[in-house]
Each structure stands twice: as structure tokens, then as C-alpha cells.
Design a protein around this nucleic acid. Sequence first.
DNA 1: AAACCCATGCAATAGAAGTGCATTTTTATG
DNA 2: CATAAAAATGCACTTCTATTGCATGGGTTT
Lengths: 137, 137
Amino acid sequence: METIEQVLESKNIRVTAMRLLIYKFLAEKQVAATLSDIEKAFEKADRTTLYRTVKTFVEKAIVHQIDDGTGITKYALCEQDCSCEIETDLHLHFHCNNCNETICLTDHKIPKIKVPDGFISEQINLVVKGLCDKCSA
Amino acid sequence: METIEQVLESKNIRVTAMRLLIYKFLAEKQVAATLSDIEKAFEKADRTTLYRTVKTFVEKAIVHQIDDGTGITKYALCEQDCSCEIETDLHLHFHCNNCNETICLTDHKIPKIKVPDGFISEQINLVVKGLCDKCSA
DNA sequence: AAACCCATGCAATAGAAGTGCATTTTTATG
DNA sequence: CATAAAAATGCACTTCTATTGCATGGGTTT
Ligand SMILES: [Mn+2]
Ligand SMILES: [Mn+2]
Ligand SMILES: [Zn+2]
Ligand SMILES: [Zn+2]
């Protein structure tokens, strides 16, 4: 089992207190977090620091960025050995219209999508909206 | 062949000069338009009017709203008899990473997506990014 | 003609995202 | 250990999209 420090170092991310805290926050959260969620969790810290920390995580590919259509970017830790870049590895995301939370469905990969002749597919974003398991009962 | 006036009236949208112009603008455009595109096309008109006109069109379901992941909402006329709401009728959208335009692939319906037990799917947003036919050559 | 509804215009606000620069903290180097 | 360099953090400010309140005015209805 890798420690958080090891995860960060393996991606050439300097270990700082703030980064450890944010990583842990994302790891414990079962749903994708907005920057504003992170702000609320760390009120002492400056917004810019949180913003840049998450940005670093995204650039170094330990966090992926989710556009669920709400207009607010969400973030979630990548799975181990995830290759966010590779099209065939991407999972789909579910956004609950009731509780407003967004969940990574890491076991549900995106099916092959056909595009017209002449078009070249590089990335795919697939978001399903509806009711999550907690809200559908 | 329905006139624009008839289209609007059939959806209980009052016909005004502005609305006819915006409808025509969207009809002639081959790609999805941003509010800012519409602004540039009608510099004499107030932004709010354009905003509310498009909003009306969306609410009355003659225009659909596209979130292509750029963070800027795009708009495109619905196909005739389109039912934007119904999951099975939705087409996918293509966003070109080069020319930055977004295109409705109205002939490419979204495949059936499986979600985990307990989740209820109501809408699906599928955006493919890459190179469009004009940019891939 | 009068009353009313609704589209339009203007001004202001909200909210997310991003940037420049000063300061502090960490790391590297002698 | 002392010091210089590099990187992270904090604060202020900006940009850009989206949205709302309120006044005005044109068209519709009675
Ligand atoms: Mn995810
Ligand atoms: Mn479309
Ligand atoms: Zn829910
Ligand atoms: Zn293109």
C-alpha cells in the first residue's frame, strides 16, 4: 500500500502540508468535489492555493477534472494506474439531479463511439444524469 | 415547408423582429453558436434581449443547449420533431480542438448506456472531442 | 381609448476562473 | 550552518459568463 507521500513523489509533486490535506480530502470523499467544496473544508487556506494545488494534481494526472454540465468543474482522484489521456480507459460520470452530486462510475467504461468520416475522435466526455442510488429509493 | 413565423407560433412564442432574426441566424449557421457569437451578429441589440430570446427558445424547445466542455454554453436549433427531453432521441456533439467549433451530429444517436443498480438515467450528455472534417485534412 | 401583457433596454450583481506580484517556506549548494 | 535559488503560498485584482431588477415602450385585448 502506497502512502500519499509516495503517490505524490512518484509523480514529481513536492509534498507539502496543504497538498497532503487536499489529497486526503479527495480520497475520503466518495463523490467529485468542486473547488468551493474544498474551500469550505479548508477555510484557513487561500482560495488561490487550493486552486493551484488542484491544478497541479490535474496536470500531474493524479486527479481528473469532470465537466458534468452544471457549469462548475468537479475534481476526483484518478484510479490507480489510470491514464486519463487514453480514450479507451475513460469511465463515465453520473450526475444526480436530486442531490446534485457527481460520481465516478469507474467500472463503466465509455463504449466505442462512431463519428462521421473525416472526423477524428481524441477524447470523449459522457455524463449521465438522473437519480443516484441514494435518491432513487 | 413551415415558415419561421409558423414554427414560433406553433410553440406559443410571440413573433418579434428580434426573434425572427435570431432564429434565422441560428438556422443559417452550420455549427452551434455561443451567446457571444449572437452578440457579434447583432451589435445593435442588447445582450440581455439576446440572452432572454435564446432562453425562451430553449424553454420552448426549439433550440437545444450544448455543454461541450469549453465552459461556454452553445446553442443550436433542434431538429424538426425533436424531443430534446427523451433520452433515446439525443444525438451526440462533436467539438473540434482545432477550430474550436461544435457540431451537432444529428445522425449519431447516443448508444444505450448501462448504469449501476439503483441509478436511474434521465438524460445523457455525450461530447466527442478531436478534429473535425475540415481540420483533419 | 384604456388597461394590460410582455419584449426590450439599461444597470448592476453573482460567481467561477485565472493572473501578477509580494512574501514565506522549502530545497539546493557551498 | 549560511546563503542563494526555487517553489509554494497569500492577497488583490481582473476577466468573462451568466443572471436579475427595474423602468420603458410597443403591441394586444377588451
Ligand atoms: Mn471520474
Ligand atoms: Mn445538437
Ligand atoms: Zn442523488
Ligand atoms: Zn475543426
